[in-house]
Simulated scan of single mutants.
Amino acid sequence: MSDHSEAAVAPVEAFEPPYYVAVFSAVRTEDQSGYGETNARMEDLVKDIPGFLGADHAQTPGGLSITVGYFRDADALTEWRSNAEHRAAQKRGRAEWYQNYTLHVAKVERSHAFKRA
């Protein structure tokens, strides 16, 4: 059993459907120079997108990282996709930080949550 004494960890809440998710799964390269700063900037920037609902992040011990971004509607997702700083970060990611990645975008039609009392 893991030690839960660290800061509380919780997934993004379940929202009333429909809404959209962007699932970005990646394996990064060895050289991550500048990645942390750029990632932090992207996390701050996406919060300013009207309709951004939140994001979940996970990483496996083997190096697979997964980010799921939640968006109220397709317009919010389009605004994020076309943001100039985000586009520049994507370009740098392909050139420097990612060995490979996949992006899946889906419309959520059903959503529920559970929380132990």
Rank of each mutant, 00 (worst) to 15 (best):
A58I: 04
R41P: 01
Q90V: 10
R28W: 00
A74D: 08
A117N: 10
S25A: 06
T78F: 01
Y98I: 14
E79S: 05
N39T: 00
A26Y: 05
Y35A: 12
R72I: 08
R110M: 10
D56A: 06
G36N: 00
S5T: 10
V21G: 01
F71N: 03
F114T: 02
I66L: 09
Q32N: 02
S82N: 14
L64E: 09
A26F: 00
A40H: 04
S5L: 09
G34A: 02
A95R: 11
N83G: 12
H4G: 04
F71G: 08
Q90W: 02
F24G: 01
S33D: 00
A84V: 15
A7E: 08
G63R: 07
F114I: 02
V105M: 09
E96C: 12
N39R: 01
E85T: 06
D48W: 06
R81E: 14
R28Y: 01
I49C: 11
K47V: 14
T29M: 10
E37D: 13
W80T: 06
V108M: 05
P11R: 06
H86N: 13
E13N: 03
S33L: 07
A55S: 12
T38P: 03
Y70A: 08
L45C: 08
E30A: 08
E79L: 07
M42C: 07
D44F: 05
R72H: 04
Q99R: 13
D44H: 10
A76N: 00
V27A: 01
V108T: 05
L53M: 15
R41M: 11
A7D: 11
D44C: 10
R72C: 13
A14W: 00
Q90D: 02
E109V: 02
H104L: 13
R116S: 11
A8Q: 04
E6W: 09
T102I: 03
A106Y: 14
A106V: 11
R41D: 09
E13T: 10
G36S: 01
P18G: 06
E16S: 15
V23L: 14
E30K: 04
G36Y: 00
D56Y: 02
L45A: 14
S2Q: 03
K107M: 11
P61F: 13
G51M: 07
F15M: 08
G54L: 14
A22F: 09
K47E: 15
G93C: 09
R28V: 03
P61G: 07
F52Y: 14
G51F: 07
L45N: 11
G54S: 14
R41Y: 04
F52H: 12
D3L: 15
A55I: 04
R92I: 15
N100F: 10
R92D: 10
K47T: 14
A74I: 07
A58P: 03
E37W: 05
S5E: 10
F71C: 10
K91A: 15
E109Y: 07
I49A: 07
A117I: 03
D31R: 00
T102Q: 01
I66G: 02
V21L: 10
E30F: 10
S5Q: 09
D56M: 08
E79M: 13
T67R: 02
D31G: 00
A14D: 05
F24K: 01
H104F: 03
A10I: 07
R81V: 08
A58R: 03
Q99T: 13
I49V: 13
A40N: 08
G63V: 06
E37K: 06
Q32D: 00
F52Q: 01
Y20H: 12
Q32C: 04
D44A: 15
G62F: 14
R92W: 13
Y20R: 12
T60D: 11
